[in-house]
């Protein structure tokens, strides 16, 4: 059988080499949890907002 994936072999090899160097894969991050934007009333009834932050790891 001719393997239709063989056309991607150079890319697969390039990617394997990159990851072998120990860097984190930039194309398969998982966003695991979100700290949502919150607002609260601070002293003097001024509203302040925290921007959303993303955590992964």
């Amino acid at each position: 059988m001719t393997d239709l994936f063989s056309k991607f072999d150079p890319l697969i090899e390039m990617r394997a080499n990159l990851l072998a160097s120990g860097v984190e894969d930039p194309f398969s991050l998982v966003m695991e949890r979100f700290s949502r934007p919150r607002s609260r009333c601070a002293t003097g009834a001024r509203r302040s907002c925290w921007a959303p932050t993303t955590t992964w790891g």
């Binding site: 194309f27 398969s28 991050l29 998982v30 966003m31 695991e32 949890r33 993303t54």
Partner: peptide, 14 residues
Amino acid sequence: TTGSRVLNGTYAGH
């Protein structure tokens, strides 16, 4: 998600 699967669009749910 406002993002592609290969960038910021892969969440735990995906």
